[in-house]
Amino acid sequence: MKPVIGVFQAWFCIVVSVFAIVILSVIGALFQSNHHSMTGSMDDPEHPKAVAATVFSAVIIYALFLVGCGFQAYLHFRENRKGAIRIS
Rank of each mutant, 00 (worst) to 15 (best):
A58N: 08
G28L: 01
P45W: 04
S57C: 11
N80M: 13
I60K: 15
I14Y: 03
L75S: 01
G28K: 01
K49W: 06
T54V: 09
S33T: 12
F31C: 00
C13M: 14
L75W: 01
A52W: 00
H47C: 07
N80V: 02
V15S: 11
R81H: 09
F56C: 04
E46F: 10
A10M: 03
F12Y: 13
F71R: 08
K2I: 07
N80Q: 13
L30M: 15
H47V: 12
F31P: 00
M38V: 15
G28D: 01
F12Q: 11
G83K: 03
N80T: 06
S33R: 09
K82C: 00
G68V: 04
V15D: 08
N34V: 04
P48T: 02
A20G: 11
Q32A: 12
Y74E: 00
A20P: 01
T39W: 02
V55D: 03
P48M: 03
V4H: 05
I87K: 07
Q9D: 14
K2W: 09
K2E: 14
V26W: 07
K49F: 07
M42N: 13
G40F: 09
V16D: 05
Q32L: 11
T39M: 09
A73L: 02
L75E: 02
F12H: 04
V18F: 12
G40K: 09
G6N: 10
M38Y: 04
I85S: 07
G68E: 06
P45E: 01
C13K: 10
A73I: 01
P48V: 01
S57H: 12
I60D: 03
T54N: 14
F19T: 12
V15W: 05
K2L: 14
S17Y: 05
M42I: 11
S41D: 12
V4Y: 07
T54R: 15
L24H: 09
V16W: 03
V22N: 02
H35W: 12
F8S: 07
A73M: 03
V26Q: 05
M38R: 03
I61Q: 09
S57L: 13
F31K: 00
R86P: 00
A73C: 05
C69D: 07
A63V: 09
V16F: 11
Q9T: 12
F12W: 08
G28E: 00
I85V: 14
I14E: 04
T54Q: 15
N34D: 14
G40E: 06
A29H: 06
T39L: 01
A73N: 01
V59S: 05
H47S: 10
H47E: 14
S41C: 09
